[in-house]
């Protein structure tokens, strides 16, 4: 579904991604784990078209999307749920969700898709007229994912969804990711919380200083000594 080849990315003179190769298959949940500043967020931003790579190839469903704008990528089914529970705090929950459908060609008929999101996140239905900023952190994260769903994605990029959330909410989030996958949405999950990410994912990549240092089946990686020592704290 997604093929990334030899991606080099710079911020100014500093190189943050070095020859990155990545593959996400149709229907897979793939985790991208690694320490702070390894380049996880940058990878997702490049995929979403928010940051231009110096060199490299990005193909979605066999089509090169390197030259497409963010809006075109969203319309094509590639949606980023950015880091830090980004929402429009002063919009209502419903307006936040509708904004997620902005880049769709059929956005004016997106109201009907609210139901799909509410079925998945009943809390959002209860709060649909409420200001988004007044909700709890976990609810805001669900809203951010729900907003991503409104774009009718085939591939969803989740950037650090567990950041700052309570353990019980993180469990809920794992269920959500599982649900998304069951609904046929392919997922690339960037996480510092390696335990959670590896438990959700089929496969995983370990990113350090802009380079993939390890990759493989999530279950196998969870048992790899390097990963255990560095990321799972045992």
């Amino acid at each position: 579904m997604l093929e990334v080849a030899a991606l080099d990315v710079f911020y100014g003179k500093q190189q943050v991604l070095r020859g990155l190769n990545l593959r996400v298959g149709q229907g897979e949940v793939v985790a991208l784990i690694g320490p702070n500043a390894a380049g996880k967020s940058t990878t997702l931003r490049v995929l979403a078209g928010l940051k231009k790579p110096a060199t490299g190839n990005i193909a979605l469903a066999g089509r090169n999307i390197g030259a497409l704008s963010t809006a075109q990528r969203v319309a094509g089914g590639l949606v980023l749920v950015p880091e830090g529970r980004q929402i429009f705090a002063r919009f209502t929950v419903e307006d936040n969700l509708l904004m997620g459908a902005y880049a769709r060609r059929d956005r004016d008929s997106s109201r009907g898709d609210l139901e799909r999101v509410f079925a998945m996140f009943p809390r959002l239905r209860e709060r649909r007229e409420q200001r988004a900023g007044s909700m709890s952190g976990g609810e805001q994260q669900m809203l951010a994912i729900g907003r991503g769903l409104m774009a009718k994605p085939s591939l969803m990029l989740l950037d650090e969804p567990t950041l700052g959330l309570a353990p019980i909410i993180i469990d809920e989030l794992s269920n959500t990711i599982h649900n998304l996958a069951t609904n046929g949405i392919t997922i690339l999950l960037a996480e510092q919380n390696a335990a959670m990410a590896l438990s959700c994912a089929h496969r995983a990549y370990v990113l350090e200083s802009g380079r993939i240092v390890l990759d493989g089946e999530a279950a196998a990686l969870a048992n790899a000594p390097e990963v255990k020592q560095m990321y799972l704290g045992s």
Partner: peptide, 23 residues
């Protein structure tokens, strides 16, 4: 219209607007 929504999105969180595909 949608134009107004995009104006508000830019005012409130420009980067998020960009992420959602707003030019």
């Amino acid at each position: 219209s949608w134009i107004g929504r995009c104006f508000a999105a830019i005012r409130l969180n420009e980067q998020l607007g960009e992420t959602l595909g707003v030019n």
